[in-house]
Amino acid sequence: MRKISLVVLAFFLLLTGCAPNFQKEQEIVQEKDDSKEKAIIPKYKISDQYYQTILPFEPSEARGLTVSQLNTRYDIDEFETGLMRIAQNTFNPDKFLFQEGQYLDRKTVGLWLNRKYTDEQVEKLEMKAEENIGLNPVDPGEGDVQTRNRENPIYLAHILEHNYLVRGEDGTARLGGIVIGLAMNSVHYFQEVQYGATYETKIEHAVLDREGKRIAQEVVGRLRQIKGLEKVPITIALFEQESNSSVVPGNFFAYANVSEGSSKLGSWEAVKEDYVLFPSTDAQNNYRDDLTTFLNFKQDVEEYFPNFNGVIGKAFYIDNELQDLSINIPIQFYGKSEAVGFTQYVTGLIMEHFPNYIAVEVNISSVNGPEALIVRKVNQDEPFVHIYN
């Protein structure tokens, strides 16, 4: 069986897919406002499904905020990669290049994520009036803290910007569109006093949908006031993040486009994506057939190691159809030969239980760290298997 390292595979999946298509390195001229700069398009394009980037890499000025604003590592990863999937509905990867956001800086994003403040609160905080531009609701400051936070939760958790450059026939690249992700809280966490107990209030999806679309229209209006963004097409997408105890990420649930030169959002398109834990009540209620297949696989794994019950799966659905399944199997091994034998056994179970239109990834680990990786892509006859040394 062929081998592939976990690091290389993860990089390919995130940025460029998995089917090599090697081209010559290209030099282009990137147009920026009134200036022009030379840039390089890397020669390795692994798949037509994913965007190429340009070099030198230019990080967003708001880089790093995602980590501090979202609840879990799962949400952080999905918010970024899911926004790229949303972009593909509007910006063709064959024609556009990806670049991290260059227009919303850290201070601007921070101010937008604030609550809106009353005049008295602005004075108390010693803020400038022009900095009172928070997109979250006002906390009136009257009554007990829990009631105020239940009635006026923080809806907007984070704002993420991606830029898409269009290649011209004359060897230039200019901004062709901007994609904005709005991460919305399904749970608002708050404290009565600093360093005190943390409380929470759940936010209904219908409320997030309403508030997210309201905030989106305000964001579009503000983007049009930024130099360089007066006319470019805009896509804006809404993401519902999970609670801080979740072991699966949240998902995007709607997006809308703004045509060139307009400040009005077009009609909202539903995004039917979902991450589901196997086994779980959600899987039992909504995806029973797929859960049964997983449980049969789990049962066969457990026959290899009696009294073992640690097989966990994360399923990704689009339009209620299972797209890929990631499975973690933590096992205590007592030798490398045992790990190799178990990996071979699990590989056979993958081919036996899961139809080939589903992508499956299995990570086998022990207390010593990763032991093996098995990857079976869609319509693949023979999976990739890597045994860690």
Rank of each mutant, 00 (worst) to 15 (best):
I4F: 02
F11P: 05
L15S: 10
D33S: 13
D34S: 10
P42T: 03
K43E: 08
S47G: 14
Q49E: 15
Y51R: 01
Q52C: 14
I54W: 11
F57C: 07
T66L: 00
Q69W: 05
Y74F: 12
D77H: 14
E78A: 07
R85T: 15
K95N: 11
E100G: 08
Y103W: 12
R106N: 04
K107T: 12
T108R: 03
L113V: 15
R115N: 13
V122S: 13
E126N: 11
E130Y: 08
V138E: 10
V138D: 11
D139F: 06
G141S: 12
D144I: 13
T147Y: 04
R148E: 14
R150D: 09
R150K: 10
E151R: 14
A173T: 11
L175P: 08
V187G: 14
E200V: 05
E211V: 14
A216C: 13
V220I: 14
Q225G: 04
I234T: 12
E242M: 06
V258Y: 07
S262T: 02
L265T: 13
E273L: 03
E273M: 08
S280D: 12
D290F: 07
F294H: 02
F294K: 05
F294T: 11
F297T: 02
D300H: 03
Y304V: 00
Y304S: 04
V311C: 03
A315T: 02
I318E: 15
E321Y: 13
Q323P: 14
N328G: 04
F333H: 03
Y334S: 08
G335H: 12
A339D: 00
T343L: 00
T347Y: 00
G348F: 04
L349T: 00
N356M: 09
E361M: 03
E361H: 04
V362I: 12
I364H: 02
S365G: 08
S365T: 12
P370H: 01
V378W: 04
E382K: 10
P383G: 00
P383C: 02
H386D: 13
